[in-house]
Computed example of a mutant assay.
Amino acid sequence: MSPDEYCQNKAAQSGSSFYYAFLFLPPERRRAITALYAFCREVDDVVDEVHEESVARMKLVWWRNQVAELYQGRTQHPVMQALAPHVQAFGLPQEQLLAVIDGMEMDLDQARYESWEDLKRYCWHAAGVVGLLSARIFGQTQEQTSDYAEKLGLAFQLTNIIRDVGDDARRGRIYLPQQELDRFEVRTSEILNHQHSERFEALMAFQTERAQELYRDAMRALPAADRRAQRPGLLMAAIYHALLNEIARDRWHVLEQRISLTPIRKLWLAWKTWVSGGRGLQRKLGR
Score class of each variant (00 low, 15 high):
79 V>G: 13
95 E>P: 02
90 F>Y: 15
87 V>I: 15
89 A>Y: 11
61 V>E: 09
96 Q>R: 14
101 I>H: 04
78 P>V: 02
63 W>T: 02
60 L>F: 07
55 V>F: 12
89 A>E: 14
102 D>I: 14
99 A>V: 04
96 Q>F: 11
71 Y>K: 05
89 A>D: 06
97 L>H: 07
66 Q>L: 01
70 L>F: 02
102 D>K: 13
81 Q>S: 08
99 A>W: 12
68 A>P: 00
83 L>K: 05
93 P>F: 10
54 S>M: 14
63 W>I: 06
54 S>H: 12
76 Q>L: 07
78 P>E: 00
95 E>R: 13
99 A>C: 12
75 T>G: 13
64 R>H: 09
96 Q>P: 07
104 M>G: 09
81 Q>H: 08
76 Q>D: 13
77 H>S: 03
66 Q>R: 10
65 N>C: 06
59 K>S: 05
104 M>A: 14
65 N>R: 09
76 Q>W: 00
105 E>V: 14
88 Q>G: 12
99 A>K: 15
105 E>W: 10
79 V>E: 08
89 A>C: 08
99 A>I: 08
58 M>D: 13
76 Q>G: 11
59 K>E: 12
78 P>D: 01
90 F>D: 09
63 W>D: 03
82 A>G: 02
84 A>I: 01
99 A>Y: 10
59 K>A: 11
76 Q>N: 10
98 L>V: 02
61 V>D: 12
75 T>M: 05
89 A>W: 04
68 A>T: 05
98 L>W: 13
82 A>Y: 09
90 F>E: 09
